[in-house]
Design a protein around this nucleic acid. Structure first.
Length: 335
DNA sequence: TTTCTCACA
DNA sequence: TGTGAGGA
């Protein structure tokens, strides 16, 4: 098949097909004596895959990597790699979607200011822009360091042997799962689910659980341990789920990875994916008394939650660990 | 018709 | 990440 026929068939320009070939997405296309390209059935399949992945917004570079060793025999690892790249894409798009939404919001705020101010509110515009940029940089920062993967294989031993990093691991998980009081059929989300130990307990209680984690290795193990668990690659600052998806959000030993300015952002995200009546239950290490200041993580969490009309219950399932249960006083109307 | 290169957004 | 022009 020659290039124009193929282009017509697939609904893209011949120019684009050449462009893909040039960029290494279509290796080994045959030529006739006159240098015309001849596309095989294999090439056609490949091109269709490319078009599909482009439609998902994947970059040409990423597609090249996905298709790299993918040859005639579709092996298990090809499937794994494709899945991995699609998951990365999903996480990336979740971030961009939030970013777009934030831009739309900033625009609305600017219009509002313009409406009610006599003078041109340039100073306010500038301040809005500053805030917006800070938000973006915080989210951006996360994307840079998501290589938790090495630790995944030892994770399940480590949580039981490393008492300093995971004090009372099992007790804390059980306590967290109990505190949130999951009802049959409720939908819950576990943030930083790791290999799914907390989510697994809630599954056993009859909840429908989803989870996110940074590490695809963790998620791989998680899937084999709990096939019923819906896990995605993502981080706490841009959660790859829709608004109002969950009745509750839980998290254990994950919030420690957030820097202080990231905490409110994570909570805003949590509130976004929660249904209006949704509750939150977070467990992690308590900072020791000496370093506990006004800005200690748990205080920041408490303050934010109280300011946003949550009723709090703080317990300590184990020495040095806190569990914070937050239930909305009245269903939050916005977001 | 198709290919290739240069330039452009 | 493509596209348009123009010569071969």
């Amino acid at each position: 098949m020659k290039i124009n026929e193929l282009a017509r068939k697939l609904g893209i320009s011949a120019r684009t097909i050449r462009f893909y070939e040039q960029n290494g997405l279509l290796p080994g296309v045959e030529r006739e004596d006159n240098r015309y390209r001849v596309f095989s059935d294999e090439d056609v399949w490949r091109l269709q895959t490319i078009i599909a992945l482009r439609e998902a917004g994947m970059t040409v570079k990423d597609i090249r990597e996905v298709l790299e060793s993918e040859s005639a025999q579709h092996t298990v690892t090809d499937r794994e790699r494709l899945r991995y790249y699609l998951e990365l894409q999903q996480a990336l798009l979740a971030g961009q979607w939030l970013e777009m939404r934030r831009m739309a919001e900033t625009t609305s705020q600017m219009l509002e200011l313009l409406q009610k101010e006599q003078e041109l509110p340039l100073q306010e515009f500038f301040e809005l822009a500053q805030q917006a940029r800070q938000l973006r940089e915080l989210r951006q920062h996360w994307r840079d360091h998501w290589n938790f993967d090495q630790r995944a294989s030892e994770h399940d031993q480590q949580v039981h042997t490393d008492r300093a990093a995971y004090p009372g691991y099992n007790e804390v998980l059980t306590h967290t799962a109990t505190s949130v009081r999951a009802a049959q059929g409720e939908r819950g989300l576990d943030l930083g689910t790791g290999t799914g130990n907390l989510a697994g307990k809630l599954l056993a209680q009859g909840a429908h659980m989803a989870g996110i984690d940074q590490s695809r290795e963790m998620l791989k193990q998680c899937r084999s341990k709990f096939p019923a668990l819906d896990v995605r690659v993502g981080n706490l600052l841009s959660i790859p789920y829709d608004d109002r998806s969950f009745d509750f959000v839980v998290s254990s030993f994950a919030f420690r990875y957030l820097a202080e300015p990231e905490l409110p952002l994570a909570l805003t995200e949590i509130r976004r994916v929660l249904k209006p009546h949704g509750r939150i239950c977070i467990s992690d290490i308590m900072p020791d008394e000496a370093s506990a200041s006004v800005s200690s993580p748990i205080i920041v969490l408490q303050n934010w939650l109280e300011q946003h009309d949550y009723m709090l219950q703080r317990t300590s399932p184990y020495a040095g660990v806190f569990t914070l249960l937050a239930v909305p006083i009245r269903p939050s109307s916005s977001r």
